[in-house]
């Protein structure tokens, strides 16, 4: 809606009450769940901004954790999740069994989860990137929180993780310590590189922060199909994720023009990192950041709307 422009003029409200946009089709509410990492926020606000500007939707962004978002789609309080990382258990429960949620296609982003060290460490200890050498360096990673073992820093409690089982099954002399959030992880990497202090942490791509600091992936035993079937016995690296979108069945059946937009939405890791950087590093408002990218990439946006 053009409220932002109109506000400057202080014009009469009756001038602007018609739902703006070119589509003309009535869109209504669109409730996009927002999960706690910046890459997700980029997806959500780019889709949201397009839906608002082009389709005239009334977009809201409930901040929820992943699992809660699924639950929200099931009970009708959320319409869509726009970056989903696997969750086979939830897929079974909500898509296969209950049928309250539908897959809405890939986002085009390839997801990687893994363990990373700051660049200075990879340089100084070149063999650290192989998990078999991790025990050799465990002492380096000791902190007050890790109880005499090496520390492996994890993210938000809601993130997909096998780390504890991995440490146990790979017989690593490490202790998983929960850092709390994406921002906490980034801050830790930043100060580790700056002060040349050791750090081993859970992290993921796509991730804008790699442009600032080229973190180095630590290779775990190679992933093979099904090696992570039993969460308690998992002893292999995380699978490559093809990130996808989800919509609630109810919303899919509502006939909203936003359904097609969400299904059509796809972009690259670079695209997402760019928007994420606008938000996280440049401190832009997510809507402004999304709008900036939309303005710079009209072709891609048009493709989603066709």
């Amino acid at each position: 809606m053009s409220l932002g422009l109109a506000a400057c003029g202080g014009g009469d409200i009756s001038d602007t009450t018609t739902a703006g946009g070119d589509g003309g089709a009535s869109c209504g509410d669109l409730r996009i769940a927002v999960n706690p990492w910046t890459g997700y926020v980029s997806n959500a606000h780019v889709i949201g901004q397009v839906a608002k500007e082009k389709l005239g939707c009334n977009v809201t962004y409930p901040d929820v954790k992943e699992e809660v978002g699924w639950q929200g789609m099931a009970d009708g309080s959320i319409d869509t999740i726009v970056e989903n990382w696997g969750h086979p258990d939830l897929v079974k429960k909500y898509i296969d069994d209950a049928g309250t949620v539908e897959d809405a296609g890939l986002t085009g982003n390839d997801g990687i989860i893994g363990w990373y060290v700051p660049p200075w460490m990879a340089e100084k200890y070149p063999d650290i990137t192989n998990w078999e050498n991790l025990n050799k360096y465990a002492d380096l990673f000791k902190t007050s929180e890790s109880g005499g073992k090496g520390q492996l820093l994890d993210g938000d409690p809601s993130y997909v993780t096998n780390d504890e089982a991995l440490v146990k099954n790979l017989k690593l002399n490490y202790q998983v310590v929960v850092g709390g959030s994406e921002a906490a992880l980034i801050q830790s990497f930043r100060s580790a590189e700056e002060n040349k202090t050791p750090l081993l942490a859970y992290f993921y791509e796509p991730q804008w922060f790699f442009d600032e600091l080229a973190l180095v992936h630590v290779d775990l035993p190679k992933y093979t199909e099904g090696c992570d079937a039993d969460p308690a016995k998992v002893a292999c690296d995380y699978p490559p994720y093809a990130l996808n979108k989800l919509i609630s069945t109810k919303f899919a059946d509502s006939g909203s023009p936003a359904v097609d937009l969400i299904k059509n939405f796809t972009w690259t890791n670079e695209d997402q990192n760019l928007v994420s950087k606008y938000i996280a590093e440049d401190g832009m408002d997510p809507d402004d950041a999304a709008q900036k990218w939309i303005d710079d990439n009209p072709d891609k946006v048009d493709a989603w709307l066709s």
């Binding site: 699992e67 809660v68 809601s158 929960v178 959030s181 906490a184």
Partner: peptide
């Protein structure tokens, strides 16, 4: 406190709220 590395019960409550299983 579980959200900032407090661990133990607090962390379990928080993760119970965010992980299905």
């Amino acid at each position: 406190g579980g959200m900032v590395g407090g661990g133990s019960l607090g962390y379990i409550v928080v993760s119970g709220f965010s992980q299905d299983q």
